[in-house]
Amino acid sequence: MIEPPRPLGRHPGWPASLGPLRVAAGLVAVRGPRLWDGGAWSRIRLRDRDHLERWEPTAPGTWEDRNATLAWPGQWSSLRALARRGMTLPFVITVDGQFAGQVTVGNVIRGSLCSAWVGYWVASHVVGGGVAPASVALVVDHAFMMAGLHRIEATVRPENKASLRVLEKLGFREEGLFRRYLDVAGGWRDHLCLALTTEDVPDGLVNRLLATGRATIPQ
């Protein structure tokens, strides 16, 4: 069993590198985004447009412009600034050391709420290989144990069965339906709200994956 550490620092939980865990697709780890990630990020995003665009919020400009290599520095700078202010915990997912997606804890609110949301995407070539559950488990455990959060929620379109399976494997509970919640793929879409609190997973999500054989710790 992995023992939880204590939160440290002015903005606890940032920066950090987490993992690895071994899953079917390879060794999964997460780390902070880097400026030189832009090339790999853009190649995957442009290649996987059909895999990603229908689930992501509508944004100005074309997919090609928003996901070009030149678009990355602005995103990287914004993520870093938000992380330094303690408002988000942004991570890059790697599989066998190669860029394979992102997982982000956003809208961090402290005080009496201590809550945030988690969002993620993974490259199409590693879908089904255990990458999404492993990376989300690493980051959510970190948010609870090191960042000192109490509740993490995720919102997913009901049609996104793959993403719902990821959250169900990790034990997220469904709490309700948000009607016309986000503008996605050009329309206001309903989203299911799923959530976890620290009381739901006292031993952590990574330990849950290890116990069920969905992941192992490399020797």
Rank of each mutant, 00 (worst) to 15 (best):
A68F: 13
A134Q: 12
N67A: 00
E159V: 04
P73A: 05
L89K: 09
V156N: 00
G111Y: 07
V126N: 09
S163R: 06
V108H: 02
G74H: 10
K161F: 00
A132C: 08
N67W: 13
L138R: 06
G61D: 05
D96N: 15
Y120D: 02
G74F: 08
T62L: 05
D65R: 07
T69Y: 04
W63Y: 06
H142R: 07
V140P: 08
H142W: 06
L82R: 14
F144G: 09
V156E: 02
G148N: 05
Y120I: 11
M87A: 15
S115K: 06
F91N: 14
T104H: 12
V126G: 05
Q102V: 14
A123Y: 03
R173W: 01
E56D: 07
V95I: 14
T58I: 13
G176S: 02
A132S: 15
I93N: 05
C114K: 05
R54Y: 08
N107T: 06
P60D: 07
W117A: 06
R84W: 02
E159Y: 01
L113H: 05
E64S: 10
R66M: 06
A100S: 15
M87K: 15
I109T: 11
M87R: 15
E175I: 13
G106Q: 10
T69A: 12
N67R: 06
E153A: 13
I109N: 04
P133D: 09
L138M: 11
L177W: 10
A147S: 13
G176Y: 11
L167V: 04
G171L: 05
V95F: 10
D96R: 10
W72P: 09
V126R: 15
V136H: 04
A137D: 08
S112V: 14
L89I: 08
H150G: 02
P73H: 11
P90T: 09
V131P: 13
L89G: 02
P133S: 09
V118N: 04
A81D: 14
N160I: 03
D96L: 08
S124L: 01
R165E: 09
H142G: 06
R66S: 11
A162I: 02
N67M: 04
I109Y: 07
R173N: 01
P60M: 11
R80T: 15
G74W: 05
G101W: 10
E175F: 12
W121V: 01
G86W: 03
V108K: 01
G86Y: 04
L164M: 12
N67H: 15
R84L: 15
L70G: 07
H142N: 08
A134M: 02
L167F: 08
A137K: 01
R173P: 00
G86L: 01
V103D: 12
V95H: 01
L52Q: 03
G130C: 06
T155K: 11
F91W: 02
L138A: 12
A154M: 10
V131N: 10
R165N: 04
S124I: 00
R165Y: 03
W117P: 00
V103R: 13
A162D: 02
V140C: 01
G106D: 04
V139T: 09
P60N: 07
V122G: 09
T88R: 13
L70R: 14
A132H: 04
E56Q: 15
G111C: 00
E64L: 03
W63V: 08
V105Y: 00
W121R: 12
A147N: 08
K169I: 03
A154C: 15
L167Q: 00
